Amino acid sequence: MNIYDISQKAGVSIATVSRVLNGSDRVSEKTRQKVLSVMNETGYTPNVFAKGLSSNSMQTIGILCANASDPYLANGIYYTERTLRQFGYNSLLSCTGHELKDKQYALDMLLKKRIDAVVMVGSHYIESNPENRQYIYEAAKQVPVIIFNGYIEHNNIYCSFSQDRDAVSNAANYLLSQNRKHLLFLYTMLSYSGREKLLGFQEALQAYGYSKKEIATLQCPVSVMETLEFLESLYPNTFPFDGIITSEDSVAIGALKFAQNRGIHVPEQLEIIGYNNSQLCVCCTPELTSIDNHLSIMCQNGVQNLIRVLKHEPISAATSIPCDLIFRGTTKKQHEIKQS
């Protein structure tokens, strides 16, 4: 069954059937209902690609993420896809990994599918070397590009991101206000978000009079057990810190396990703060204090901005989302601090 068969059964021209499929107002309501009735009777489903060619829109958004098995990125994909569906858009997902050539290839493949826009979930797409962003700039010449949890300034690129630097700075200020004098920041990668978190930690301690040499930061693995093993290998005897902030909740739980194995009392001797306020926070004892970067709000806001862009409405190129510090059992304080 094709568009010709529908036109024959409905007794109208192929052009009329095409106008009905594309929602044209150049068809009377009586004729429209006649064509739709034939489609229902025959079970005809229009070819989406062909319809997209005629309307110049596939109603489809490409989504890129590094690893869909990562809980944080998986949630980002879920919030993005759900909000897109609310606006009548389908999505195509590509998991790119972290290698530049793989990210370039995945983006090129999506563009060949005639997508209406690209959503990049995760700040790792914004590499510190500007040359490694060139493929994103080239894509933005063809379709709008939305980036979640990262920021670059360029034509037709729109960013929705959390205020990571302020959030970590506030967390460090809390620990310092509790007379914690020996703080450690554990991070997993220096993506845009990772760099902002690191800067927030460094700036907070420098404001308290710490020199750069006195500020302790370590890059570590992302998983719970690998973080545990990493800390055990570095500190086989004494552990010189009384406060830890991490870039991921999984790293914070690894640090918590390390402390418990050493007989270090949390939060009395050591306070620990994670990041993302994930489900992992309530899966450990004591429950984990964590920074909530409001991923769902970030994704919903980004998709809403994308829809405005596709409707040619003016929007801001950058939207920043304040974070909240959610206190639980790994810190002495037990209530939420909202970021101003």
Rank of each mutant, 00 (worst) to 15 (best):
Y137T: 10
H335E: 12
G302F: 09
E99N: 06
N22K: 09
K311S: 12
P236F: 06
E232K: 08
H182R: 15
Y89S: 00
P314A: 07
K113E: 08
S94A: 11
L36R: 13
E81N: 11
D164C: 04
E226P: 00
E41G: 01
Y105G: 00
P144I: 02
S162P: 12
K9S: 14
Y208T: 11
Y125W: 00
I253K: 01
F49P: 06
I272K: 02
K333V: 07
N237A: 13
H124E: 04
I253G: 01
V168I: 12
P314T: 10
G62I: 13
I61L: 09
L92M: 13
T188N: 11
T188P: 05
Q8T: 15
E29K: 05
L186T: 10
V119S: 06
V27K: 08
A50Y: 11
L21C: 09
G122K: 04
V118W: 01
S316F: 06
P46G: 08
S18H: 11
A10E: 04
E336T: 15
I126T: 01
G122S: 08
E214R: 13
E226K: 05
C65W: 10
I273A: 02
L295A: 10
K212A: 14
V303I: 09
I14D: 09
S191W: 13
S28F: 14
N173S: 07
Q304V: 03
S223K: 00
A68E: 14
H335P: 03
T188K: 03
I61K: 08
F239V: 02
G243V: 07
C65F: 11
E196N: 09
F230C: 05
E226G: 05
A68H: 10
I157G: 07
M58A: 15
Q260E: 01
M1F: 02
V145K: 02
S18L: 14
N155S: 11
L270N: 03
L21M: 15
Y79F: 15
T217S: 09
I77N: 10
V224M: 04
T45W: 01
C159P: 10
E127Y: 06
T289F: 00
L190V: 12
I63V: 15
H124P: 03
V119T: 07
L280Q: 06
C284Q: 00
S278L: 04
E232A: 02
A117K: 04
N56C: 06
Y125R: 00
L107W: 06
E29C: 02
V251P: 03
L107T: 06
A317R: 07
S24T: 12
S24F: 11
Q339N: 07
Q202C: 09
L111H: 01
F258I: 00
S160H: 06
R180G: 08
I126P: 03
S57C: 08
T83Q: 13
Y78H: 11
S18F: 14
N293S: 14
V48I: 15
P286K: 00
G200H: 13
